[in-house]
C-alpha cells in the first residue's frame, strides 16, 4: 500500500467517524429541540416603558407598537394616555396630545365615553402613552412586538438593551402576551 492510498484510507475512516459523531451530536440537539419556531415578544407586565423600543430595533421603523386592550379601557374623556398633562382643553388639538406622532385617534362614542385607537402606521413604540395610561388609568395600552413587522433576529437588539429583561422567546404559534379579555379571546383562538 503506497503512502498516498494509506493516507486516503485513514482520511476516509476519520471522515466516517466524524459523520457518525455529527449524527450523534445532531441526535442530542434534536432531543433538546422544540417542535415549532420561537419568536421575540415583550411581557407588558415587566415593561417599564424606557423608550428603547422606539430607537433600538434594527428596523428603521420599530416592530414594537402600542396595542390597545379595549376590554380594559375606561373610555375616559380625561385620558391620561392621550392628553398631555396640563392640557388646556380636552380635545384633539395637537398641542393637547401626549403622543409625539399623533398616533392615537380619539373618537366620541356617547356621553361620557371616548374611544382611543392606535394608528399603527404612525406609532413609533415609544411607550409615552403607556406610561400615562398605566400611571393614572387602567393599563389598557401596552407595547407588543408586531409579528407582521418583526424580522425575528436571532438576537433581538431591543431585547439586548431592555433594562427590565421584558423580552423573551415565545412559541411562534402564540406570539403575543396580551391583557384583559383580549388575552382570553386570543388563547381561545389558539
Amino acid at each position: 500500500m503506497s503512502l498516498k492510498t494509506r493516507r486516503d484510507f485513514l482520511k476516509s475512516g476519520v471522515n466516517t467517524a466524524v459523520a457518525l459523531a455529527m449524527g450523534g451530536a445532531a441526535g442530542f440537539v434534536v432531543g433538546k429541540s422544540g417542535k415549532g419556531d420561537l419568536v421575540w415578544q415583550l411581557d407588558p407586565n415587566i415593561c417599564i416603558q424606557c423608550e428603547n423600543c422606539a430607537t433600538n430595533c434594527v428596523l428603521p421603523e420599530s416592530a414594537v407598537k402600542c396595542v390597545h386592550s379595549y376590554s380594559m379601557c375606561g373610555y375616559c374623556d380625561l385620558c391620561s394616555g392621550y392628553l398631555e398633562p396640563g392640557a388646556k382643553s380636552r380635545d384633539t388639538g395637537a398641542e393637547n396630545q401626549l403622543c409625539p406622532t399623533g398616533a392615537i385617534k380619539r373618537t366620541f362614542i356617547e356621553d361620557p365615553y371616548f374611544e382611543y385607537e392606535i394608528d399603527e402606521k404612525l406609532c413609533i413604540g415609544c411607550g409615552k402613552c403607556i406610561k400615562g395610561c398605566g400611571a393614572f388609568g387602567n393599563g389598557s395600552l401596552y407595547l407588543q412586538v408586531k409579528h407582521d413587522r418583526c424580522v425575528n433576529c436571532n438576537e433581538c437588539s431591543i431585547a439586548r438593551s431592555c433594562p427590565s429583561n421584558a423580552f423573551r422567546r415565545v412559541p411562534a404559534e402564540t406570539p403575543y402576551i396580551l391583557r384583559g379579555e383580549e388575552a382570553d379571546r386570543y388563547s381561545a383562538q389558539i
Binding site: V67, I109, E110, A172, P175
Partner: peptide, 18 residues
C-alpha cells in the same frame, strides 16, 4: 361601560408570525 348607542368594541389585531 354600558354603551347605549350600540357601539361595539373593536377587535385588537394580532398578526401571526411567519
Amino acid at each position: 361601560p354600558d354603551f347605549e348607542s350600540g357601539y361595539e368594541r373593536p377587535i385588537m389585531q394580532t398578526p401571526a408570525s411567519r
